Computed example of a mutant assay.
Amino acid sequence: MWDLVPRLLAGNRYLVLATADRQGRPWATPVFFAAGDEDHLFWVSAPDSRHSRNIAERPDVAITVFDSHAPIGGAEALYLEATAGPAGDPAAALTVLNARVPPGKELSGDDLAPSGPLLAYRADIRRHFILIRGGDARFDNVTDARLRVTRPQE
């Protein structure tokens, strides 16, 4: 079922990023993203935004990728456990992000700190899970469940 991972990453533009502050207070926010591959996601955010401050304090994050326009009962979702922080190579992050933005909306190095208001962030994914809808004939589940998936061995 790994094939859902690249398909959902390629087919959706926004993720929900869940962070927590030092005291453990949770925060979730939608973020435009681009996948470098199935194990690395990139986005830009203001370093003083709540989720960015939380990442600075606690780099462990949870991420959900899904199509919010899917009909009831037809949803697919990807759940990710990751570690996030500023991208080690901001220029490479911008290249990945700019491949997904509409013409004329591309980001440049001038948009990034220290001269600009944004930082490029990277999430390194540790675990991938997919949504198994309740009543799926392949599984013995009445309610929705998550299934951990791993990349097939080459």
Score class of each variant (00 low, 15 high):
residue 2 W to P: 01
residue 3 D to I: 14
residue 5 V to Y: 11
residue 5 V to K: 05
residue 6 P to A: 15
residue 7 R to E: 14
residue 8 L to D: 13
residue 11 G to H: 02
residue 13 R to H: 13
residue 14 Y to F: 13
residue 15 L to K: 00
residue 15 L to N: 05
residue 16 V to E: 07
residue 19 T to V: 04
residue 24 G to Y: 05
residue 30 P to F: 05
residue 31 V to L: 10
residue 33 F to Q: 09
residue 35 A to I: 11
residue 36 G to Y: 02
residue 38 E to T: 13
residue 43 W to T: 00
residue 43 W to I: 06
residue 44 V to K: 04
residue 45 S to V: 03
residue 45 S to H: 00
residue 45 S to A: 09
residue 48 D to H: 00
residue 49 S to P: 00
residue 50 R to N: 07
residue 52 S to A: 14
residue 53 R to A: 04
residue 57 E to V: 03
residue 57 E to K: 08
residue 57 E to G: 12
residue 57 E to L: 07
residue 59 P to M: 10
residue 61 V to P: 05
residue 62 A to T: 03
residue 63 I to K: 06
residue 64 T to Q: 04
residue 66 F to V: 11
residue 71 P to A: 15
residue 71 P to M: 01
residue 74 G to M: 06
residue 75 A to W: 07
residue 75 A to T: 07
residue 78 L to T: 00
residue 79 Y to K: 09
residue 80 L to V: 07
residue 80 L to F: 07
residue 82 A to L: 08
residue 82 A to E: 06
residue 83 T to L: 08
residue 86 P to S: 13
residue 90 P to V: 09
residue 91 A to Q: 15
residue 93 A to K: 12
residue 95 T to M: 14
residue 95 T to D: 15
residue 96 V to P: 12
residue 98 N to C: 04
residue 99 A to I: 00
residue 103 P to C: 05
residue 104 G to T: 09
residue 104 G to W: 11
residue 106 E to G: 05
residue 108 S to Y: 11
residue 112 L to E: 08
residue 113 A to Q: 11
residue 114 P to K: 02
residue 114 P to D: 05
residue 119 L to R: 03
residue 120 A to G: 15
residue 120 A to S: 15
residue 122 R to K: 15
residue 124 D to S: 15
residue 124 D to K: 14
residue 127 R to N: 12
residue 127 R to Q: 13
residue 128 H to Y: 02
residue 129 F to N: 06
residue 132 I to K: 08
residue 133 R to L: 03
residue 134 G to D: 10
residue 134 G to V: 01
residue 134 G to P: 11
residue 136 D to T: 14
residue 138 R to L: 13
residue 140 D to N: 13
residue 140 D to K: 12
residue 144 D to Y: 09
residue 145 A to Q: 01
residue 148 R to L: 01
residue 150 T to D: 12
residue 150 T to C: 03
residue 151 R to K: 13
residue 151 R to Q: 11
residue 152 P to D: 04
